[in-house]
Nucleic acid binder design. Structure first.
Length: 323
DNA sequence: CATCAGGGCCCTG
DNA sequence: CAGGGCCCTGAT
């Protein structure tokens, strides 16, 4: 398969709204690894499709939490116009909440005696997704009813068959295929990649996106209920997938209604030190405490424990997540 | 070797 | 609105 080699064409400087936590925003330790992005402390790489082209993006931390500054290298196989650069700047701003004002959330966090150390450690972290809606749905679908190992395998299979290999800045990553490219791919061909019944979901989702039955751009400006409705109409998108999309792709920080059983177990441990607390109680307690920032607050505590897991052995967590 | 549940969802009754 | 079935895989 052809590898697209991109070279550096332009460099942008972006000044995020302070406080901004670079590593907490660009790297989510709870997510499974993929070949669409890469990270090391202070540096992030990803591919991105905009205006009909594939770009490589390298984002470097050039500031601090209190005085944030990002240097963004744009890689392409042709000249990058100022319209391209503007589109990339604009898209990154949305995907990573770069201009988001976290003031009200921080105010809440300061009043939280118990978890303030965690909020302080990650001060300025935002919800994020490097992918557009279609890409994030694909990720969410391979996540369904599967262990992490199998999810990784399924996404790898899909990307090596349909993705575009991109090389830039010494990295080799993939860019997602476009929905319309699956038009002539049969469900059986997808099943051959060992993705099981998800083949049907991906087939139908791709059709819907190719036909423009869902408008990501428009939904970014819609309220949560409208967006949730539109998402749940998509074949293969249920309560948990919708939750992921609402929080990561649409930046609704209050998305804390659906709690899956495996999440319930981890929340019970994190918030109560018990093995099992009812989802009703968890939902009520968290919503009361963090209001419209319920999911963001939980996200801080959630990512923190997965971050710690990289360095220390956390017995109960290993038991619960089943890699 | 068989059985089972897993970071859900759709469909049926 | 509860429950069965679904693809595949590694664990038991």
């Amino acid at each position: 398969m052809r590898v697209h080699t991109l070279t550096r064409r332009k460099t942008l400087t972006i000044v995020p709204k302070a406080p901004f936590h670079f590593d907490g925003t660009f790297h989510k330790p709870s997510h499974f690894p993929d070949q669409l992005e890469d990270w090391e402390p202070g540096v992030f790489w990803q591919t991105i499709r905009l205006r009909g082209h594939i770009f490589g993006v390298k984002i470097e931390n050039q500031g601090t939490v209190a005085k944030p500054k990002l240097r963004v290298g744009i890689y392409s196989d042709r000249l990058v116009s100022s319209a391209d650069a503007d589109a990339i700047r604009h898209e990154l701003s949305w995907l990573f909440g770069i201009d988001e004002d976290l003031g009200a959330f921080i105010h809440l966090a300061k009043k939280d005696r118990r978890f303030f150390p965690v909020f302080k450690k990650w001060l300025g972290m935002r919800s994020s997704s490097a992918h557009n809606l279609y890409g994030l749905i694909i990720v969410a679908v391979v996540l369904q009813n599967a262990t992490v190992r199998r999810s990784v395998q399924m996404l790898k299979a899909l990307l090596s068959r349909f993705g575009v290999r991109v090389r830039f800045d010494g990295k080799e990553l993939y860019a997602f295929w476009q929905p319309a490219e699956l038009e002539n791919v049969t469900e059986q061909k997808l099943r051959d990649l060992r993705i099981g019944y998800r083949a049907k979901f991906i087939k139908r989702l791709s059709q819907d996106f190719a036909l423009g039955k869902i408008n990501e751009h428009k939904l970014r400006g819609s309220d949560k209920a409208t967006t949730e409705d539109a998402l749940k109409k998509l074949y293969g998108v249920g309560p948990e997938t919708a939750r992921i999309l609402l929080f990561e792709a649409f930046r609704h920080y209050d998305t804390f209604e659906h709690i899956a059983p495996w999440q319930q177990k981890i929340y019970s441990r994190l918030f109560y030190g018990k093995s099992r607390v009812s989802v009703e109680k968890i939902r009520r307690d968290i919503q009361r405490r963090y209001g419209s920032y319920a999911m963001l607050a939980v996200h801080y505590i959630w990512e923190d424990i997965f971050w710690r897991r990289k360095h220390e052995h956390i017995e109960w967590l290993d038991r619960e997540i089943r890699l």
